[in-house]
Structures are given as structure tokens and as C-alpha cells.
Design a protein around this nucleic acid. Structure first.
Lengths: 159, 159
DNA sequence: GTTGAAATTCATCGTGG
DNA sequence: CCACGATGAATTTCAAC
């Protein structure tokens, strides 16, 4: 675990907004030299804090209007790894976590429409390891954050 | 909704892996000119396909070892918007969707440890609009994808 | 830990096939 | 629709405070 200072956080806040923002521009906005920006980012990269820069696509423009969470109940939880391998092959499943509680897995599914969702549902229901699925269709994100970076900011303020 | 061709998808695949990858390098890898890479990316930006480039942080390195999904059951669903405003103020909640099914909202929560999770749980339980919460602690992602881009690739192959 | 300037590399735009 | 070539801007490194 690594400690970040005020400058690090300000840089991260800018990169969360736009990962391709020019270092020179970040430097100007923060009132520091671009070399420093470069050094801090290199440091956070080396420390593994910055995992990667990724492009975020707009699902709606590409015709993916629907997404849903699906809770998966297995017949036999000892076989969970085999199920993961099968789930990985279904491109519509964009997130898969093993969880405590009623479900074995909680999935996030991105599809074009309700018919497409039904199609995914049937593919899952046909897997012999799966006993039951429960679908929670989302009406879209109310909000979504990259990371609880506000917590880190508060911790610095308090120190 | 916009149609993408083979080149567009190959470029997106590279940017999903590394949004800051140099256009010249992408061009080399794909065997096309960097001008073309530039044009295609500009096109996809203008079309809104490329939403933004964002930095992805590594929670573990920053001391956030635990994350969980929480299902929220409201006392009175007509008051849901007020609840969203309150949830937004809790930095640990990094995702909030209104969903069908047993829950009103499904949240994704990122915390340092189980004690921290309990703290968030209590904050939610104290909100008067909330009747009940159900916590599903995750043992980490089995896998996570940016977007079901494989579907688009298949559609191009088939055409 | 921080800065300013140097060299290298890149993004961007016009021209032309 | 695509490649080449020139220009201005950015990243990256180095020497110095």
C-alpha cells in the first residue's frame, strides 16, 4: 500500500476525467512543471497504482441499450471454476464475481435489447451446472464512479 | 447507432488495452498509416462511440481490498430520487443502478476492509428511506470486460 | 524534492493518389 | 477512402538548484 500526497491526487483526478490529457496542460492547471507531472505519473505507474489507461465506449451509440445484473445459483458450488470458464465464453457477460449470499455469482450483462437479454438468459439456463438465475434489469446507472478517490482526499486533509 | 468496420474494431481493441498507445504504434501494428488511425479515432469520437479515455486505478495497491454489491429495498419507492442524492454523497458507493426485481437499487461498494464495509452498511441502514439492505461480498472479479466487443467482431465476420 | 531547457517522438493537417 | 510529408506540439530525459 502506497501513500499519495496532494499533488498525486490532483493529477489522478485529472486523469480520471481524461487519461489522454497532455502533461503540459495538467502542469499548467496545477501550477507545477510538466516534468513533475511526468515523474509523479511514472512513480504511480511503477507502484502499480495506475493500472492502465483504457478507452470507455458508449454502449447506446453502438446499439447496446440494455444491461442487467444476473444472480447465478449453482447446483454444486464445488464445480464453480468450470462454470467461470463457460461464462467467460459468453461475450455479453462483462463482469463476473464470486459473491457471498444467495447467489454464487453475480454477473453484469450488456445486451442490445430485451430479446437479446432473453437469449443470454436461455444460454445460461441451459448450462447444466446452473440451478437458477435471477435477472435484475437496470434502468441505467444513476451514477458511476471510477474509484472512491474522495476518501483519499479526506484522509490527506485530516493529516 | 453507427456501423464499424474491421479497421475501427482493431483500433478499438488496441485502445481498450491501452488508451495512450501512440497512433504511430497502432498504425505499425495494423499495417496502416498513422493518418488513417487518426481519422478513424476522430470519426469515432465525433460519433460518440468513444466516450472518454480514463485511468484505471488498482484498488489493492491503494489499500482497498474489499468490494461488495448491496441490494437496497426502499420503504417507499416514490422517494427514490431523494435516496439517490444521499447515496451519491457516500464515496464508497462507486456504482448505483435502479433495477427490476427484489431490490430497488443495486450498489457496488469499494472499501478498505470488512470493518469499513460494516461502517458503510450502518450508514445505509440509518437512512430512513431504506427498509432493508442485502450485502453480497465479492471475492474479487473472476473476470471483467470493458465492452462485449467480440459481438461486434462476429457481426462483421458474418457480413 | 523540484525546476527549466534539450532532444526525441508524436499528433495533426494539407496535398495528392 | 487512404498514404505521404511537413509542421507544431508533446513526451521524456538530463543537468542543476
Amino acid at each position: 500500500m502506497v501513500k499519495l500526497d496532494d499533488i498525486d491526487l490532483k493529477i489522478l483526478n485529472q486523469l480520471i476525467d481524461d487519461a489522454k490529457k497532455a502533461y503540459t496542460q495538467i502542469a499548467k492547471d496545477l501550477g507545477i512543471s510538466n516534468t513533475l507531472v511526468h515523474q509523479r505519473i511514472a512513480k504511480m505507474r511503477d507502484a502499480g497504482i495506475i493500472d492502465k489507461m483504457e478507452v470507455k465506449l458508449n454502449p447506446k451509440v453502438l446499439g447496446f441499450d440494455t444491461f442487467a445484473y444476473m444472480g447465478i445459483i449453482l447446483k454444486d458450488t464445488s464445480r464453480s471454476m468450470e462454470v467461470v470458464d463457460k461464462l467467460k465464453e459468453i461475450p455479453e457477460i462483462i463482469e463476473c464475481s464470486y459473491v457471498t449470499g444467495n447467489y454464487s455469482f453475480l454477473l453484469k450483462v450488456m445486451v442490445r435489447n430485451n430479446g437479446h437479454l432473453r437469449d443470454v438468459f436461455e444460454r445460461l439456463d441451459n448450462l447444466k451446472e446452473i440451478q437458477q438465475t435471477e435477472t435484475m434489469i437496470s434502468f441505467g446507472f444513476e451514477f458511476q464512479k471510477n474509484f472512491p478517490i474522495h476518501l483519499l482526499e479526506k484522509e490527506i486533509e485530516d493529516s
